[in-house]
Structure formats: C-alpha cells, structure tokens
Nucleic acid binder design. Structure first.
Lengths: 336, 336
DNA sequence: CGCTGGCACTCGATAGAATAGAGTGCTAAG
DNA sequence: CTTAGCACTCTATTCTATCGAGTGCCAGCG
C-alpha cells in the first residue's frame, strides 16, 4: 500500500490538508499549482495525487472532484509536520500565562475554567479530566456531627480538594468519639492514595470499629467521584459539521463521560497525542479527531486535557494550544 | 386582534397544535376534517382557520400551505388544554417514584441525576437549578490549616452541602487562633443565609480581625458558586431542529448558565410554568420553549427544574413530567 | 526518465421548464 | 351558518440541458 513518500508528494499532501482544513472544499490540482508554492505543473501534481490516493492518503468524494485527506493522510500530516512550530499562537501565549496567574479557587473551578479557556482558544469542544484516583493522597479526615444519627465525612486530599459525604449511623456516637476517630484515621491514612485503603485495626469498641469501617468504605467511594470530567464548548460541535445528524451523534457521545474518559486514556496509553477518525474506534466519532495531553504536577501525570473536533481540524494550532495549556495547568497546580 | 374564541375554533386550534407537534408538517383543513373528529366540513374548518390566522393564533409558511401555530397559538393551547391530564404518563409515574426512592448521594449528584431523568423522559434538554442562595443557611464554619500561610475554609450549610475555598493569609496564624475564629464565626453566623452576612465585630486582635473579614468575604463568594445549574441532554437539541444553525445558537445559549438561570427565574417570577418562543425574550431561543417548575422542600421553594425544547413541543407530556419530577425531588429532599 | 501541455471524459452542480397536487379563498346555494 | 364547488396559488418534484471543475492518460520535450 504505502509506496515511497518523496518530498514533493509530502508537500502536496501537506498542502491538501492545509487547504482542506481551511476551506472544507475538495482540493484540485490546478489550484495547488497556482497557490501552494510547489513549482511544478498541475499535471505533475495530478500524477502525485493519483499516487497518494492509491497509497491511501487522499480520497475523492466522487470522480472529477478534488481530493480530500483520508484519516491516514491526516495521520501522516500530524506525524510529519505538526511538530513544526505554529508561531501564530505566540500572541495567545501571553493570555494563557495571564489566565493561569489569575486563576484561583477550587480545583473544580480551575478545571472547568481551563476547559473553557481551551474551547475558546480553539473553537472545538474541550475536555479536562481531573486527577485520576491513584494519584490522590489523603491529607486529612474529619467527621462532623450533623445530628444524632448522621455524620458528615470530610476528606481533604493532597491537592487541597475536599470530598464530602453524609453517613447514616446505626448507633449514636458522641462528639468526643467522633473526634477520636477523626484523629485516628487521619494519622493512619494520611499520605495513602484513595485507591489502596486497608481496614484499620480494631480500636476495642465495636461502635467505633463500625464507624471506622463505614468511613473507610465511604472514602473508597470518593475514588469514582473524583474522576471528574469537565467538558465545555459542546456547542462548537455544531460549527464543525453541517449534517445535523452528525452533530447529534457526536454530542450524544460526548455526554457519556465515561466513554470520553476511557477514550482519552486509551490514546495516552499508546503514547499518542492525537487520534484521528477511525483510530478512535468509536463509530459515532468516525468524523472526529481528538488531541490530548497529560498535565504534570510535581513529576506526576495527574490528569489530562483534550480537544474533540472534526478530523478536518487545524492540528498545528490545536496541538500548540493543548501543549501550552497543559504545561500551564501543570505549573499552576504545582504551585498549589 | 383577538376575536371571540368559540368552542369549535378552540378545538381546531388544539387539533392543529397536536398534529403539528407530532408531524412537524403544516396542517391542512381537509386533513383535519378527516382525522380530528371535528364534525364539520373542510370548508368550515378553512373559514375558522382563516379567522384564527387573522387573530394571530396560526400562520402559513406560504400561501397554499397548511397552517402552523404561532407562539400565541401555543400559548392559548397551553393555557386552555394543558391542564387536562395526560394519562399516557401513568406508566412513567412508577419509574419516577422508583428513581427517587433509589436516589442517594451528594446533592450535586442528586441534581444531575434528576436532570438526566428529565431529559430521558422527555427527549428535551433538562435543567435543574440548585438551591438559590437566599435559602441557604450557614450551619458551621471551619478553618483548616494547610500550611503556614494557607487556610482551607469549609462551610457546611443547612442542607448538608459543603463549600470550600483555600485562602491565602498575609500573616501566619496559629492553629489555636484558627480554632478560636472557627468557633466564633460558627456561633455568630449559624442560621444566617449566605445572602446577608454582616461584618462580625472586632475581636481585639488585628490579625484575627483580618482573618474574620477574609473569611466572611469568602463565604459571600459561595453565593455565586452555590447557584449550581445542571444541564443534561443538550444533544437532544440536535433532534429538535434540522437547521444546524439553530442548533448551534441554542446550544451556545444553553452554555451560558447564568442566562439559563435568570431565564428560569424570570418565568417563575411571573407565576408561569411555560414560556414560549418570543416570550423568552432571548433572540437565539426564539424557536424554543421552556417549561419549568419549582421544587418545594419543607414549604420553601428551594430551586427549580425545567426543560428546554422547540416551541413545537409536546406540552401536556412535558408539563406532566416536570410536575411529577419536581414533586418527587421536593419530597426526596424533604426526607433529608 | 521525469515533467508538461493537451485533450477527451466524467460527473456533480446549477438553472430552467413542465407537472402534480396540496391547500387556499371565495362564492353561491342549501 | 354551513357546505360543495371551483379557480387560483405556490411549493415540491422531476426532467433536461448545460456548464465547468477536475481528472486520467498520452505523446512529446528537455
């Protein structure tokens, strides 16, 4: 299938992608000969385009139309050209820095604001995933009495985020005992990740033991909840496609957060930053691409940010944006 | 403009709405004469339709097409007929009850699950707003030391919800002082709504005073954050319209949460449950209707639920669903 | 051997004309 | 007040013709 990719063919492929991304119209050979700066005749370009089509990089919507890139074509483009700098974003760099120096507030806000930043920068739908449960360490555990039978469990994690849950007790427990258990659990569990909590040893009192068990159970439940996803700019999907049906399918898929999360995880686990169309392996997203990047806090990959747009996407710009924002977010979170 | 609305004209208007809601096609007089059960000839229906058009209840997309309802037509329909029971939803009643007996977890989850329930029942986008700030009372205030200069503010409200915020301090403050301030503020502020917090009197120590002021400031900030909105089923908008442009406009508007919140508030403040098209006063939502209902907890209107769909909406069904879910949610929250 | 101009061919997109038929408004009669 | 009848309007559909962008291929040229 894949024949040799000489320099001119690569340049043509590149030009087709650039042009098609911008115009959404199939690109013809004579247009390229005029505009792209490739110094050969349209006939020569035609020949190469023909080869590129047979090699699977380009396709024709119908005979006697121009060419549009295939997923494979986009893939080659991304792998080959996207690393080259897109200096049109130098301007944005300032505003991103500014955003992160001004940003404050709870983690949740931070993430949703970041998501909004991304979607505004790129005009695609943005996804930010919170820290994955394995990386969250317990900092403190507190039990607050609400009324005789109900206790509020508060957990502060290593990032300063707070999780809470109301627990119903079988027996009444005194404030003093609550405090005792709070202190005990904080001492025992501080520094442990939510993922691997073991049962604390017995305290001697069955009532207190029961409370401890219940608390640890509840703490474990925080694991799921903390896997938060912040999706902003879903409406941008409606800009990207003109088939209302495609829009519906994509939006419905984005609403299934777990799908989006595992999608992003899959991409990252392959060491990729970009997944294109069919590579996503999700039928309703066949016309979409995803660009992701993890953010790193104190050397650890805490979570990730990403963009979902049409395969016909401005990859250099989007990659630049994602990289910029992920390092910004990482830095900002490292500061505390 | 509005001439007398005799019974037959009302029946015709009703039939037009019912038919158009279902088919999305303009409704003609002969079709109604055949199907609607109105026992007059098509010519008579035609005459009445003509009147209805001149009175502003119906309109024609073009001469020699059937009629479709105007916003005013929908309004009359809703005011006149929507109170009649829609027993097609008796079935759903069971599943709603079931939902609320099974539902548990934090408030936030409760709300977003409720939103999802609504969107699934109706196939329109659902909105659930959390308790409005005026109804939230402070139950307790706690300050937790994170490190020398940073303090975590935790507030538990009367519904057991917790808000948190990290505060940066100008000066170091001892754990003992933190505790003192925590206790003092809890004592002073317990039972007050977030909306109306006054400055506590001086403690004597400037450092502590500063901390108090900062804390009260931060508490006030919770007001905005607690006005949470849970919108689910945005993708359903893409089912409702076939102009991708309309979809885009509507989605973009839904993403501006504050707009949606104030929209719902406006509708409720007029004592309405339904707002139709132009009544919304929001240009991009000109083709949308909103159906809302407050939910009542212990005699108080805490927040509201609503649906956003096309004006061409199944009002009886949607009203039934909204009423059902809002009472269900109210009951569920009253239980604790 | 690779590039190019030339050319026949394909096929979607656009425009125009003709037709069908759904639906109307009006009128005159019951 | 209702209705049958009818002329009229206007969209949607179909068909045809035409246009032209773009292709593939070939023969010639450096």
């Amino acid at each position: 299938m894949s024949g040799p990719m000489d320099q001119r063919k690569a340049a043509i492929l590149r030009a087709v992608v650039d042009e098609y991304v911008q115009s959404a119209e199939p690109v013809g050979s004579s247009y390229l000969a005029r505009v792209s700066g490739i110094q050969v005749s349209s006939a020569t370009i035609r020949n190469d385009m023909n080869l590129l089509e047979h090699e699977g990089y380009l396709t024709q919507p119908h005979t006697s139309a121009g060419r549009i890139p295939t997923d494979k074509g986009y893939r080659y483009y991304v792998d080959t050209f996207a690393s080259e700098v897109d200096d049109s974003d130098v301007l944005q760099f300032k505003s991103v820095e500014e955003f992160f120096t001004k940003a404050h507030g709870a983690l949740a806000e931070m993430f949703s604001d970041t998501s909004r930043l991304l979607t505004n920068m790129t005009n695609y739908a943005a996804v930010v995933t919170g820290p994955s449960p394995e990386t969250i360490l317990i900092r403190s555990v507190q039990l607050v009495s609400l009324d005789s039978r109900r206790v509020l469990l508060l957990m502060v994690d290593s990032k300063g985020a707070v999780e809470k849950k109301v627990m119903e007790l079988a027996n009444e427990i005194s404030e003093a005992d609550l405090e005792k258990v709070s202190n005990m659990l904080t001492r025992k569990l501080r520094g442990f990740p939510l993922g691997s909590l073991c049962e604390p040893e017995s305290t001697g009192s069955p009532d207190l033991d029961q409370l401890c068990t219940l608390t640890v159970e509840s703490l474990k439940e925080f694991q799921g909840e903390s896997e938060a996803v912040y999706i902003e700019g879903a409406s941008k999907v409606a800009n990207a496609f003109d088939a209302v049906d495609t829009v519906r399918r994509v939006l419905a898929t984005l609403e299934q957060h777990f799908l989006v999360v595992s999608l992003i995880r899959d991409v990252l686990s392959k060491g990729q930053k970009v997944a294109i169309g069919s590579e996503l392996g999700i039928e309703p997203l066949a016309e979409c691409s995803v660009v992701v990047s993890p953010y790193v806090v104190e050397g650890e990959q805490l979570g990730s940010i990403g963009l979902v747009g049409p395969t016909r996407m401005n990859y250099p710009k989007v990659l630049a944006a994602v990289n910029l924002v992920s390092t910004g977010l990482g830095k900002r979170l490292s500061e505390g």
